[in-house]
Design a protein around this nucleic acid. Structure first.
Lengths: 237, 237
DNA sequence: TGAAAAGGTGCCAAAAACTGGCACCATATA
DNA sequence: TATATGGTGCCAGTTTTTGGCACCTTTTCA
């Protein structure tokens, strides 16, 4: 029985029983009174809220609202959660957004620092807005998650991105652009990029992008994307 | 240097260096070759994917996709995340939704079983749809997160809910209803409830509900809410 | 008011876990 | 074949953890 394991059973005992005394817990867990007290201290250090009342009729109680859980998440999973919450917050529809943020902050804190930096940089490239009701959704496709790695690499390393694009009229062109931002107007995703040949910003609907690939060894300056307020041109090619 | 701490630094070393040999790692971490090998075994047991190649030119490598993180989350935080992801999935805008789901599933698995049951029951009461573009959002208020505990209790215990409601014309009425479902049409939240005096379903916009309170000791049957397809009447009182 | 029941702390020896070294094995490459 | 690498079993020495003890504080009840 390792320390970790014993503390887990202790928490489970506390959850089950509501209120109990140290001696009861010691018996249940199979450890001495002293060890239980030490474990309770350790759990408090870890952030568990454990109430204790001295005196006759007192006891130990785990604050039910503080019941916590641990899970191992991969970085892509964390990123997916971050985006969900960011998008949800943008629609201002979530009374829970503070809670969700708090949860994500904890998860982020547990990530290795270089990954956090990457996630932050990606999130900074991500703008979430509200879809204007006029937008025509009749031919909405689905974005293929398999395309994401290329985007991630392009954004994190400032690499040019080459892909084939099908425009609103159904015509295909090949593009090589400087990715500047990702724009989410649920349920559509856009790539906002500087097109060096046309010398202007362009918005590409992600569900119309095919076979994107990074061009390694190239690099470009990050530009200021004109996003504020009404400047969301939807100049869908 | 505790075991936990040393394993953390080991993981960090692996992340930094890409590929390295056991002896290098031992030197970096400040432990013996034997201990490093033991730690690698322990990390593998914990779910880290660590590749190793014997022979000249071989070495140890941490699978970058398996970089994981742990965090302790409270139940309300988990619930908030669940709702974010559910809402996001409903808009079909999230190429990550599978990833986010996988992450949440892991988190859920770590929750105490009774809490999972509660969460599932609450989520079953939660319907997320897409806002019809015609909806008038001009007077949109914000839902107060402070109202949520009453809703949670009402749904989990099948309790009648009493509140004062301001309808679209600005008139106030007092209601006592049987909560059946929550409906999210971002950015608006609705309470779908059976009104026993009017003998019909009603949709209440949550931002127009005031001072909700559960009526303890009362209970009622759960009804089938007519939700499918176009039956989303918006009969905003 | 005093006794009993409860949580909490400091200390120390005994017990348990961990560590490092060693010998040795398996595999791949020059 | 020699060398460089990962991997395992074993054991003595070291470090950490544990349990017991004495003692303190707070609360309740007789």
């Amino acid at each position: 029985m390792t320390v970790q394991r014993r503390q887990d059973t202790l928490i489970r005992s506390l959850r089950r029983s509501g209120t109990s005394t140290v001696d009861t817990l010691a018996q249940e867990v199979g450890a001495s009174r002293r060890t239980i007290l030490r474990d309770i201290g350790a759990l408090r250090d870890q952030g568990f809220v454990i109430h204790s009342e001295p005196g006759r009729g007192g006891g130990i109680q785990l604050d039910p609202s503080s019941i916590q859980t641990t899970a191992r998440l991969s970085v892509p999973e964390v990123f997916a959660l971050l985006i969900s919450v960011a998008a949800m917050r943008a629609t201002r529809s979530l009374p829970f957004s503070n809670l969700a943020d708090a949860g994500l902050a904890k998860i982020e804190k547990a990530l290795p620092t270089d990954k956090v930096r990457d996630l932050r940089r990606l999130l900074n490239c991500l703008h979430v807005g509200q879809l204007s009701p006029q937008q025509d959704l009749s031919d909405m496709g689905t974005m293929d998650a398999a395309l994401l790695p290329a985007f991630e690499a392009a954004f994190l390393q400032n690499l040019h991105l080459r892909f084939s694009y099908r425009d609103a009229k159904g015509q295909h062109t090949n593009r090589t652009v400087e990715p500047q931002a990702m724009l989410i107007l649920p349920p559509l995703w856009y790539l906002v990029a500087w097109d060096p040949t046309r010398h202007d910003f362009r918005h590409f609907r992600m569900d119309r992008i095919n076979a994107p690939e990074c061009i390694t060894g190239t690099s470009f300056p990050r530009r200021h994307v004109p996003f504020e307020d009404d400047v969301c041109p939807y100049n869908d090619l």
